[in-house]
Every structure is written in C-alpha cells, then in structure tokens.
Design a protein around this nucleic acid. Structure first.
Lengths: 152, 152
DNA sequence: ACACTTTTTCCCACTTTTCGCCACTTTTTG
DNA sequence: CAAAAAGTGGCGAAAAGTGGGAAAAAGTGT
C-alpha cells in the first residue's frame, strides 16, 4: 500500500496543468504507470489517487446492487467528476475544468498527503483552513479522534 | 466488463443530437461497434448502455417468469423507451423525442459515468441533485450503502 | 395512386480547442 | 561551478465540436 508524506506547492498554468512535485513523484513506486484518478474531495479540494489506491475502492463500489436507489445516489455523488489522468512528458497533470471550478483553484495550489492519496488545495483556501485552527482546538480534536473511548 | 469514469458536458442541437464526449469515446473498447441502447433512467435522466453492457441485462430480464404479473409490469416499464442508437459519422447520437421529454433535456446536458453505463442529465437538474447534498448527508448515505450490516 | 409537404437521416465542411512535444529558464546537488 | 534535474511556457498538428444542406423516407390530402 502506497502512502504519502509531505506538503508541496505547485502552480496551475493557463491550460490547467500542474507539475507533480518531485517530492511526491519520488514516493511513487517506480513500476507504477504514471496514471492517476482525480476526483472531487469531500471538502472544497480535489483528491488525487494513484491507480493502485483507486482500484480497490472502485472495485468495492462496483459490487453494490445497482437496483438499490441509494446505491445509485451514492455512486453518482462519489464518482461524479472522477477522471483518469496521466502524466505528460514533462511530468505534469491536466486538471479537468469542472474540477478546477469545484476546488476554486487559482494559480497557486498546495498538494498535501492524505495517506494513500493526495489532496489538492487552492493555496489561499488551505491557508485559511490552517489559520482557523489554534493549537488548542487541534489538541481537542486530536484527543477526540485518537481516543475513541471518550466519544460516548 | 467496460466501466466508465468521468463527467462531461455536451449540448443537444436543434435536431436532438449530441456529441459523445471524447472522454467517453476513449473509454469504449475500440472493437466495440458504435452501438448503444438508450433508455429511461430510474431517476429523471436517461441511461446509455454500450451494447456490451445492455446484452447481459436484457438476457437476465428475458429469463424472468412471464406468468408473473409483476414481471410483465416491470418489463413494460423498463423496456418501453429502450431504443437502439448508433453514432453518426461525426460521433453524435440522436436522442428519441420521447426520451428527451422524459428527462426534460434542454440544450445543455451532462453525461455522467455510472459504472458500466452512462447517465444523461439535464445540466440544471444535475446541478440541483448535487446542491441538495451536504457533506453530512453524504456521509450518512455512504455509511448506509457501504456498511450494509448496519441496515437491519 | 400520385404529387406535394414535412420530417428524418446522412454526410460534408468549417471553426475551435486540446494536448503532445520541444525548447528554454531556474533550481538543486555533487 | 558545472551538470543534471525541476519547473515553465508556448507552438502547431490533430482531434473535437458545430452547423447546415441535400438526399431519403415518411406522412398527408386530393
């Protein structure tokens, strides 16, 4: 299982391309084809899955019963916008327009590791998110998440 | 088994034709004849099946017991409106009028992957569907769908 | 049954966009 | 400081997308 670490900046050019930072590229298994799936994130960001991370998720979803309306709704929402992308000869990825819009990406973006995938944020949005966090609120959150026994 | 990924926009022209977006066309097996079956969706949308996806479904339905009135009813609903369509030389599909009506398609449409088939939505309807989702309601839905054991 | 109108289907030709590639600049590293 | 790698920009061929006209088919009325 791949897992990423780190946070890198990049810029989107006029055509909607950005360079996958060398830091992440090094973390990809070298046998990995340069193939990814990019999707809307749950928050106002995008999620970039190397194909190896995406496949098992897709596999699970594909086995659900299509005649269940909730399944259809779930799939529609979850798969919406998911797009396969590929590194170009210069190591860049092309962002689909609708996804750029979803995440309100401008020129500067931040790529953040999220376990087996990478989140893509507009630089300012990401900064706002961070600034809104004090070390106390972080500490409380950490305790809630890491110490589930307290949650009852 | 074919499976699609992505979400693309297209427009229906005055004659009821729309261009199958290049993104989807690339995902079709190249040996696939340019043949499709288009049908009413369960929701207010249309469903576009490449012939390979349609055939097994049709096969299943044809094996249901014809003496069961519910089967007859289901078939009537499900099969009526199913129409075979073919790409024209410019890569467009012609939408039957009754289906355009069913999905209230106007000029702008959105084509969305739904595993082995493609859903066709009126752009505004699709947006409404989306906007009606909050990240919480999605979390609940996801939990219901992905964790069937909880549903008893 | 035939002439005429309307609709459908097919195909051609043009415009716009995309994206693969190349070439250049900047940064890193040994 | 040189060489390699990282990062940026942009051209131009090829594909995508659009519109419309003509042929064929279907429909209608006398």
């Amino acid at each position: 299982m791949i897992s990423f670490l780190g946070e890198y900046e990049s810029t989107v050019d006029a055509k909607g391309r950005f360079l996958l930072p060398a830091g992440f590229k090094k973390q990809l298994p070298q046998d990995a084809a340069a193939q990814f799936v990019i999707n809307r994130g749950f928050e106002k960001c995008l999620t970039l899955y190397p194909l190896q991370s995406w496949n098992p998720i897709f596999e699970t979803i594909s086995q659900l019963n299509d005649f269940d309306p909730k399944v259809r709704e779930f799939r529609r929402y979850f798969l919406n916008g998911a797009t396969q992308v590929e590194l170009d000869s210069a190591g860049r990825l092309l962002l689909p327009k609708n996804l750029i819009e979803h995440a309100s990406l401008d020129k500067d973006i931040v790529l953040v590791s999220a376990m087996n995938k990478i989140e893509i944020w507009d630089k300012n949005k990401y900064k706002e998110f961070f600034d809104s966090f004090t070390s106390e609120s972080f500490s409380i959150l950490a305790n809630e998440v890491m110490n589930p026994k307290l949650n009852n």
